[in-house]
């Protein structure tokens, strides 16, 4: 079973950089737990909060989701609904935070480049929608 899954995924794998596969696999293992524990037969939708800094290409993630769930009939046709969490950088010197949309690591307040990524790397399953 695993072999088949891997083979079908290879095609996508080789079209880009598969952050997305690793992320899809992580989401799926969380969702499977929820499906199992609730005894649900049909998954419709998964609401995910996704950090912008993870650099995910949405189309790739969709393809990977399809590939990773294809062997479980409960998940056929299910989709991911993504909420993007913006990247926020925080200064170690003065605690200022700023959005990373201009790709700056220098603090706009004190001018020092001593920062870490405060937000934007989340991967969180909020809720799933299943058939009643």
């Amino acid at each position: 079973m695993l072999k088949k899954r891997v083979a079908s995924v290879t095609l996508f794998l080789y079209t880009g950089c598969m952050h997305e596969m690793s992320i899809a696999a992580g989401i799926w293992s969380t969702v499977v737990d929820a499906l199992d524990s609730g005894g649900h037969a049909k998954l419709l939708n998964v609401e995910v909060t996704l950090g912008e800094y993870l650099g995910v290409v949405n189309e790739s993630l969709d393809l990977c989701w399809e590939a990773i769930t294809m062997d479980d009939p409960r998940a056929i046709g299910s989709v991911l609904t993504l909420t993007l969490e913006p990247t926020e950088v925080a200064c170690h010197q003065c605690q200022q935070t700023w959005l990373f949309n201009d790709h700056r690591y220098t603090c706009p307040q004190c001018g020092v480049s001593d920062s870490h990524i405060e937000r934007g790397q989340s991967l969180f399953v909020n809720q799933i929608e299943v058939e009643e």
Partner: peptide, 15 residues
């Protein structure tokens, strides 16, 4: 039916 999951996901790679 919607079911709250509210779970941090560990990426497969990170495991």
């Amino acid at each position: 039916m919607e079911i709250k999951v509210m779970q941090n996901v560990l990426k497969a790679n990170d495991v």
